[in-house]
Amino acid sequence: MDASAQTMNTNRESTVVTNAPHIKMKGEKVNVFYGEKQALFDVDLEVPEHQVTALIGPSGCGKSTFLRCLNRMNDIIDICQVKGNITLDKTDIYDSSVDVVELRARVGMVFQKPNPFPKSIFENVAYGPKIHGLARNKTELEEIVVESLQKAGLFEEVKDRLEEPGTGLSGGQQQRLCIARAIAVSPEVILMDEPCSALDPIATAKVEELIDELRQNFTIVIVTHSMQQAARVSQRTAFFHLGMLVEEGVTDEIFTNPTDKRTQDYITGRFG
């Protein structure tokens, strides 16, 4: 605990957020059902802009489900039903006027297991800009790709082999490639579903560092299994348990002074 508290403190010092930040996304009374089974119960959560919000909790608590509601990835599961209100910049994203393709372009996602497409590194990153028509010509496309790879901290490692398949990279590199792929579309929000769970500690450290940098340009919501990780990278933390949002607030406070007994039990390792 000591070591992680240390990192947590240093992190906070460098990233203090002033004023009341703009609320980028907001969920109100979100209920999710998988067929008969209810997975989320009345979740209310605000995601402030340019901050990292961490969702933590034991497995099966609904944190991933909530994350996937934020860019409607649950739509592709037939039996899944979402009730309640989720807004992006005050627009209800489940409103019929909202286009899911556009939404997902604005709210990008990085998955648990790195899932590069079976194409070259270049094509992986260029995929989003291509389908959305973001680049007017080849030079622009190259610019976007290079820029995104740079932002994802991968460019130096792969600049000589952009034409090689993305699946040939190491796990950590693959995940950063997926992050580059997500930011190439220049989304406003990036959702990350346990992005480091398949990575070794060194790769994890790199990705965490990256997340902290990305915060300047993007709003980030991250689901994580590791409390240390939440403490290291996030400014706000929400604790889920059995489909309910138990407690949320500034990361520091959640970890040092939780109000709910369940949160306390979880972060001190009594269950999870």
Binding site: M73, F111, A182
Partner: peptide
């Protein structure tokens, strides 16, 4: 995961 990766980018 391959499909989700693409759909998640707004394809």
């Amino acid at each position: 995961a391959m499909r989700e990766g693409s759909l998640g980018l707004g394809a």
